[in-house]
Design a protein around this nucleic acid. Structure first.
Length: 391
RNA sequence: GCGCCGGUGACGGAGUGGUCAAUCGUACUUGACUGUAAAUCAAGCGCCCAUCGGGCUACGCAGGUUCGAAUCCUGCCCGGCGCA
């Protein structure tokens, strides 16, 4: 059961203000969905994640399947109860791990294209014209077939098989409010031929996920793929939109420049049903947030605020701060002078810098809290701007 | 006082005649990170010029042996342990 209401449509952009109603409460959109892969926002308690303004979190099917296993979670009363999080939850399908533990890992590359890369992932034989990294079409640690994906667990080498049906079954056992179809996000260095073949597979899996669902209690989002190829993106949007999903995810990579992503979002969202919610998967540096909201994205998740916090990067209204840099040892100011979070209310940059350099765990926790607060607040202000007709 | 062992770059610690400006770890500096195998990873780290590279000074201090020494010898200084 998911109800999505659009309260206001911007006249200046494609942005919309909305409310997602789930069995565990409301989500005001646009909203950031902080990442809690293993049923925890790393370094924070559930209460802290809430205090940082988070309305909804996203956990991961693959990782929770490995540890502790969905049966444990179900026995403990489901994901919300297990993690002490009463608010709405999403689970990602495990599709991202097909990429991140597959070609992403093999080539040491995320989903954003590195312009200096000369490798490519191809469907058949190596290209005669381009410099190609010799490697069939299968990643080293997993095998992707029409039926699904066979992972070799990085924990113990055990074989883990995941496919559309199993992903849905696990996600039903976990019990999040919003769940995602099993898909394959393609690599930025995949050839068009590879992406096209992968897309057919992802589309087939989407349908299978719908069929696998035993109850409409959870909202199953279909995922649009197609990489950086506009025709494939459009084809995917049309295909996924034609299926009876209550909401949509937009996944994968969009090339190396942000303008391409914006364009791609525009044409994709023009096809997706307007009244249904759209979730952009895995995007969210601060500079991305307003552009994607302006393209009509309702929710988006990103590891950046939490992940970067553990590396000592604080986000502020004036940009990034590398808190561990020695210069901050003399800085009495808070991370961000206008931030109202608990970290900024109490601690100086000098103290946080010291904690980082001394490898105190509190450093990561304090910074994670700040970053999360900062991002959530930033998105809240964007909602306010839409409400006031300014965005 | 005698005996034994030892003194290596910011620190810990390899090396024990040429391939050593010196393995490695830490610290430090810089960079990366977008549905989290990530409290991670990469690069640099004596000084000077430099594109490849080259020059200089270095392994407690001072001498010596040798074509060549962080590595061998002598003396001194310092530390640990043992015996007086």
């Amino acid at each position: 059961m998911l109800d999505f209401k659009i309260l206001k449509r911007s006249k200046k952009s494609h942005a919309r203000l909305g409310v997602l109603r789930t069995a565990h409460g409301l989500v005001e959109t646009p909203a950031l969905v902080p990442v809690a892969t293993q049923a925890a926002v790393k370094t924070l308690t559930a209460a802290q994640a809430m205090a940082a303004g988070s309305q909804i979190l996203i956990c991961n099917t693959f990782h929770l399947h490995l540890k502790p296993g969905e049966k444990i979670v179900r026995t403990q009363g489901g994901l919300h109860k297990f993690m002490g999080w009463p608010r709405p939850l999403m689970t990602d399908s495990g599709g991202f791990q097909v990429f991140s533990l597959g070609f992403g890992r093999d080539y040491g590359m995320g989903k954003i294209l590195k312009t200096d890369s000369t490798a490519e992932i191809i469907r058949g034989q190596p290209s005669p014209t381009l410099k190609t990294v010799e490697l069939g079409q299968q990643p080293k640690l997993l095998k992707i077939t029409a039926e699904g994906v066979r992972f070799t667990s990085y924990l113990d080498g055990k074989v883990i098989e995941l496919d559309s049906k199993r992903s849905i079954r696990i996600q039903e056992a976990l019990g999040a409010d919003i769940i995602f179809a099993f898909d394959e996000p393609t690599s930025p260095i995949a050839t068009k031929e590879y992406v096209a073949a992968s897309l057919r597979r992802t589309h087939r899996w989407a349908k299978e996920c719908l069929d696998a669902q035993t109850s409409p209690k959870q909202a199953l989002y279909g995922i649009v793929q197609g990489g950086r190829y506009k025709d494939l993106r459009l084809e995917s949007a049309r295909h996924i939109a034609s299926l009876p999903f209550p909401g949509f995810g937009i996944g994968g990579e969009f090339g190396s420049d942000k303008a391409t992503m914006t364009k791609m979002l525009r044409s994709t969202n023009a096809i997706l049903p307007e009244e249904k919610p759209r979730h952009l998967l895995g995007i969210g540096h601060p500079e991305d947030i307003l552009p994607i909201i302006k393209e009509g994205v309702d929710t988006f998740d990103c590891i950046v605020p939490t992940h970067y916090a553990r590396r000592g990067i604080a986000f502020t209204a004036k940009g990034r701060l590398d808190v561990g840099k020695a210069a901050f040892l003399k800085d009495k100011r808070p991370l961000d002078s206008k931030c109202e979070c608990a970290t900024c209310g109490i601690h100086s940059r000098a103290y946080l810098c010291h904690l980082f350099r001394a490898k105190e765990i509190a450093a990561m926790s304090l910074l994670t809290f700040h970053n999360l607060y900062f991002f959530n607040d930033y998105v809240a202000k964007a909602r306010e701007a839409i409400r006031k007709g300014k965005l």
